[in-house]
Design a protein around this nucleic acid. Structure first.
Length: 784
DNA sequence: CAGTGAGCGAGCTTCCGCTTGACTT
């Protein structure tokens, strides 16, 4: 029997609050929502004023029963879920499902977990805000209608098991459109001209300067350099201006994901898993937040720590205002629970993330950095163009002592340096001038984190869904995260030194990508289909517009079913029309004709992915098929590349009296010899051009590797072996694999040891639970 | 696991936002 039952959303939060509240309070967690729309069907009675059909999911039944019992016995139930739309709905669902009585139920809210805030909340209870609840119901119902009515169209018109939704489809759209923009991009080049001057005072100092604008071609560059051959260079002006830099606000979910990606190379899901661990261990505040707010306590603690560690001059307490669209600010910013804790126990990754959070929080409460920027203008006696030299002096470090925010711009040249002392009118001795051909670059491809940033800017998705959305679009095969190798590019360098002009052709690698998001063919096809038929939902402003209406519902100015009806009536009509009239969409595209047979050659999505096809099935003969290679796409493949696909598999030659053939299969390019397969590394060899000498080399190397794979064999039984695999040593016996227990190594294991291990069963359960398993395991498999 | 490939059939797949584990690989 307990006097007061408090229900919050998160168990970690529950245990913290329980400490603040004392003996008369029992604090429990609902673990998020406790019920949801029916999963099997639409779950909405459309004909009956859109009545939602809520059910308590199987895995929540036990929890609900427990809460029900506790609530029945309690004198007062305090519903303390988050102060936002979803939180209000959670409280309402609890009220309904637990059968609470209005007179013994109180709704309280706080957006920071401090003792003062919670006691204050207890003193100021209110009732459930039904308007806010209705806004959530509208949000929920709209998302279900969109997702569950459009997805089945994709199953019929494109491919089974695909999906569409208000958030994910826009995320895919961003990536598809960026890729098209990149393919349409035409690069151009111009010459960047820099000069180095040799100073005599201070001795041997060099002054580096840049021409005020780029020169658009080689001829003009040569002409300019000729003018410089006998020119005099004179300092025309020196201007010094103070400037300042301010720290970035403390982390939200989105900015944490971005910085952890840029600075630590973490994927968004990695960041969230680590942050969850830190949160559960009480190291940081809640990690799913859109707020940059810090509690009074945190600000004071920061002031104390900064003053102690760096001195009073470095402290500048400040509160930040959120800029992001649709922020609901139910929590604090992400910050350390105790700012004076520098080292925490845990894995290296956890420590690094914690350190990042701590430094960012501290820096946000520090003084601006003060700089002095100096710009010198250098006149050229023979032309009106000018060289500019600029330098920066740090007058006061301020927050830069602790933390510098990174940017997404890969091409940013950060070359702020100190300028040597210069006088107006001073004549400079030229050492050399260098003109380098530079190219314009296309917009960057999205990383996981920069996609999150973009979605947040558009107000699409929430802190709790950024990471899941990113993994959904990859799981559906719409998008792949990949590295791509760059291409070699030549560029021109022209130098003027000792009055001599010389030209060099240089090489650089361009277009290399690391962990970037690329659209797949299926992603592109689905996107085009959706843009064609559901343009309004794919609109970047769709979410922002419906959010405005949700706000009206939340303030009581609009009925939620009325809003849904206004959306659904035309939407559903579109669904019906599209189902009936739209063509099957498999990206079919005719590339040209096959010179050998004169038949048309086309590309499209087949049962096993993108493929090329020669001839139609209606012909007497069966058409010929060939799958597209990795990195190729329906959108960009050329006729020539498609024809190459049909040259495989090809005979390379013979080795040890057996044929060697080369092909490309599901797992990439390979050689086949004597019924054995040998993978080719795409960087080194390719199936179309490999010759027999190189093929024999590949086969021989693989054979040696195979031999080294066997760590131990046993005289007692030749079928028992210890092999060296991708995950270390393991035991093989009669085609079954067995794990080596911790604490033992391949060397120490005896024949008897191995027999013992084998008796205890194989490393993994052979029997898969259900036919569903492979689909789900795909998600886990991608984690390396 | 390694060049498959449309058209019988039975039934399944799917949304977004709240929250944690339980699983391997």
């Amino acid at each position: 029997m307990v006097e007061n039952l408090v229900i919050v959303e998160s168990p970690a939060k529950a245990s913290t609050i329980e400490k603040f509240l004392g003996k008369n309070y029992l604090v429990k967690s609902s673990f998020g929502h406790i019920r949801d729309l029916e999963k099997k069907n639409l779950g909405i009675d459309v004909k009956n004023d859109y009545t939602p059909q809520y059910i308590v999911p199987e895995d929540k039944k036990k929890l609900v029963a427990e809460l029900k019992k506790l609530a029945k016995d309690a004198q007062t139930v305090w519903l303390a879920s988050d102060e936002d739309r979803e939180g209000e709905a959670i409280s309402w669902h609890l009220f309904e499902v637990l059968g609470l009585k209005p007179e013994k139920t109180k709704r309280i809210v706080f957006n920071e977990i401090t003792k003062e805030a919670i006691l204050r909340a207890i003193e100021n209870p209110r009732t459930i805000d039904n308007n806010l609840v209705n806004a959530q119901q509208a949000r929920r119902v709209l998302d279900r209608l969109v997702g569950f009515e459009i997805s089945p169209i994709l199953w019929r018109k494109v491919k089974p098991a695909l999906s569409a939704g208000r958030v994910q489809s826009v995320a895919v759209r961003l990536i598809v459109e960026r890729e098209r923009e990149i393919h349409a991009f035409k690069t151009s080049s111009a010459f960047k001209v820099t000069a180095n001057f040799q100073l005599t005072d201070p001795k041997k100092a060099t002054l580096y300067a840049e021409l005020d604008n780029k020169i658009n071609n080689r001829d003009n560059t040569l002409e300019f350099l000729k003018k410089c051959q006998n020119a005099e260079f004179r300092v025309a002006d020196v201007v010094t201006k103070p400037s300042k830099k301010s720290p970035a606000p403390p982390f939200t979910t989105s900015t944490l994901q971005q910085e952890a990606s840029r600075k630590l190379g973490f994927s968004v899901s990695q960041t969230m898993t680590l942050a969850q661990k830190l949160y559960e261990a009480g190291r940081i505040t809640y990690m799913r937040t859109d707020s940059v707010n810090l509690s009074e306590t945190a600000i004071n603690m920061a002031k104390e720590v900064i003053t102690k560690d760096y001195g009073e001059k470095y402290s500048n307490p400040r509160q930040y205002k959120t800029k992001s669209k649709g922020a609901q600010e139910a929590h604090e910013a992400i910050r350390p629970s105790y700012l004076d804790q520098i080292d925490i126990p845990g894995s290296t990754a956890e420590k690094r993330l914690y350190d990042l959070i701590r430094k960012r929080t501290i820096a946000s409460q520090m003084s601006d950095a003060a700089l002095e920027k100096t710009t010198a203008t250098i006149d050229i006696s023979t032309t009106s163009e000018k060289f500019m030299a600029s330098g920066e002096v740090l007058k006061f470090e301020g927050f830069l002592k602790v933390y510098i925010e990174s940017t997404d711009d890969e091409n940013e040249e950060n070359s702020e340096r100190l300028l040597p002392p210069l006088n107006k009118g001073q004549v400079l001795a030229l050492d050399f001038i260098k003109a380098t051909e530079r190219f314009t670059h296309h917009a960057p491809r999205y990383t996981e984190a920069s996609l999150v940033k973009k979605l947040e800017e558009l107000g699409i998705g929430r802190p709790s869904t950024y990471a899941p959305t990113i993994s959904t679009i990859q799981q559906r095969g719409y998008v792949v995260k990949e590295d791509r190798e760059g291409d070699e590019r030549q560029y021109l360098g022209i130098t003027l030194k000792n009055k001599q002009i010389s030209e060099q052709t240089l090489k650089e690698i361009t277009g290399a990508e690391k962990a970037k998001l690329f659209p797949s063919d299926i992603g592109t096809i689905v996107n085009d289909f959706l843009i064609n038929h559901f343009n309004d939902i794919l609109d970047f402003n769709f979410t922002a517009n419906v959010e405005k209406e949700f706000d009206e519902i939340a303030t009581g100015h609009l009925g939620w079913t009325k809003m849904i009806d206004k959306f659904y009536s035309p939407f559903h009509k579109k669904v019906e029309i599209t189902t009936e009239t739209s063509e099957r969409s498999i990206g079919e595209k005719i590339l040209g004709t096959d010179p050998a047979s004169g038949k048309p050659i086309m590309v499209k999505i087949g049962r096993f992915g993108p493929m090329a096809q020669i001839g139609e099935a209606t012909d007497e003969e069966k058409p010929r098929f060939a799958g597209l290679l990795k990195g190729q796409s329906i959108e960009t493949i050329t006729l020539e590349q498609a024809l190459d696909l049909f040259k495989l598999p090809r005979l390379v030659g013979s080795f040890e009296d057996k044929e060697v053939t080369a092909g490309v299969g599901r797992f990439g390019p390979y050689l086949k010899h004597d019924a054995k397969f040998y993978s080719l590394r795409p960087k080194e060899d390719d199936a179309l051009s490999i010759n027999i000498d190189r093929a024999i080399e590949v086969i021989t190397i693989k054979r040696i590797e195979q031999q080294n794979k066997v760590l131990k064999t046993f005289a007692e039984d030749s079928e028992l072996q210890i092999l060296n695999g991708r995950w270390g040593a393991y035991i093989v016996y009669k085609k079954e694999n067995y794990k080596i227990p911790k604490g033992q190594t391949a060397e120490t294991l005896t024949f008897q040891d191995c027999q013992e291990i084998i008796k205890n069963g194989p490393a993994k359960a052979k029997a898969k639970p259900k036919a569903k398993a492979p689909v789900k395991s795909a998600a886990k498999g991608k984690k390396k």
